[in-house]
Amino acid sequence: MTLLRIEHLSKSFDGVKAVHDVSFSLEAGRLLALIGPNGAGKSTCFNMINGQLRPDAGSILLDGKSIAGKHPRDIWRLGVGRTFQVAATFNSMTVLENVQMALLSHERRIFNLLSRVASWREDEAMMLLDLVGMSMHARRSCAVLAYGDVKRVELAVALANRPKLLLMDEPTAGMAPEERNALMALTARLAKERNIGVLFTEHSMDVVFEYADTLIVLARGELIAQGNANAIRNDPHVREVYLGTGASFSPHAALERGAAQ
Results as ranks from 00 to 15, higher is better:
residue 2 T to C: 06
residue 3 L to V: 05
residue 5 R to N: 10
residue 6 I to P: 12
residue 11 K to C: 03
residue 16 V to P: 04
residue 16 V to Y: 13
residue 18 A to R: 01
residue 18 A to S: 09
residue 19 V to A: 13
residue 21 D to F: 07
residue 23 S to H: 03
residue 27 E to C: 10
residue 27 E to L: 01
residue 28 A to T: 10
residue 34 L to V: 01
residue 35 I to K: 08
residue 36 G to C: 01
residue 37 P to W: 06
residue 37 P to A: 13
residue 38 N to R: 11
residue 39 G to Q: 10
residue 41 G to P: 11
residue 42 K to S: 07
residue 42 K to M: 10
residue 49 I to R: 07
residue 52 Q to W: 02
residue 53 L to T: 01
residue 53 L to N: 08
residue 54 R to F: 05
residue 55 P to G: 04
residue 56 D to G: 01
residue 73 R to N: 12
residue 74 D to L: 05
residue 77 R to T: 03
residue 79 G to F: 08
residue 80 V to P: 06
residue 81 G to I: 07
residue 86 V to K: 06
residue 87 A to H: 09
residue 88 A to H: 11
residue 90 F to I: 09
residue 92 S to V: 12
residue 94 T to G: 14
residue 94 T to A: 14
residue 96 L to V: 11
residue 99 V to F: 11
residue 103 L to Y: 02
residue 107 E to A: 15
residue 107 E to H: 09
residue 110 I to C: 09
residue 116 R to Y: 09
residue 116 R to I: 10
residue 118 A to I: 13
residue 120 W to S: 05
residue 120 W to F: 12
residue 121 R to C: 09
residue 121 R to P: 06
residue 123 D to I: 02
residue 125 A to N: 10
residue 132 V to E: 07
residue 135 S to G: 06
residue 136 M to C: 13
residue 137 H to M: 14
residue 140 R to W: 04
residue 143 A to N: 10
residue 144 V to W: 05
residue 150 V to G: 06
residue 151 K to I: 04
residue 152 R to W: 01
residue 153 V to R: 04
residue 153 V to S: 08
residue 153 V to W: 02
residue 154 E to W: 07
residue 155 L to D: 02
residue 165 L to Q: 04
residue 167 L to T: 12
residue 171 P to S: 11
residue 180 R to G: 13
residue 182 A to P: 01
residue 182 A to F: 05
residue 183 L to P: 05
residue 184 M to W: 02
residue 186 L to F: 00
residue 189 R to H: 14
residue 191 A to D: 10
residue 192 K to V: 11
residue 197 G to W: 03
residue 199 L to S: 09
residue 200 F to H: 09
residue 200 F to S: 08
residue 200 F to E: 03
residue 202 E to K: 05
residue 203 H to Q: 08
residue 203 H to P: 07
residue 203 H to M: 11
residue 205 M to I: 09
residue 206 D to Q: 09
residue 206 D to L: 04
residue 207 V to A: 10
residue 208 V to L: 08
residue 214 T to H: 15
residue 214 T to F: 05
residue 217 V to A: 04
residue 219 A to H: 15
residue 225 A to P: 09
residue 226 Q to R: 13
residue 227 G to V: 11
residue 230 N to D: 15
residue 231 A to L: 10
residue 231 A to M: 10
residue 232 I to S: 02
residue 232 I to N: 14
residue 238 V to D: 11
residue 241 V to G: 06
residue 248 S to K: 15
residue 249 F to C: 12
residue 253 A to C: 01
residue 257 R to Y: 13
residue 259 A to G: 00
residue 260 A to S: 15
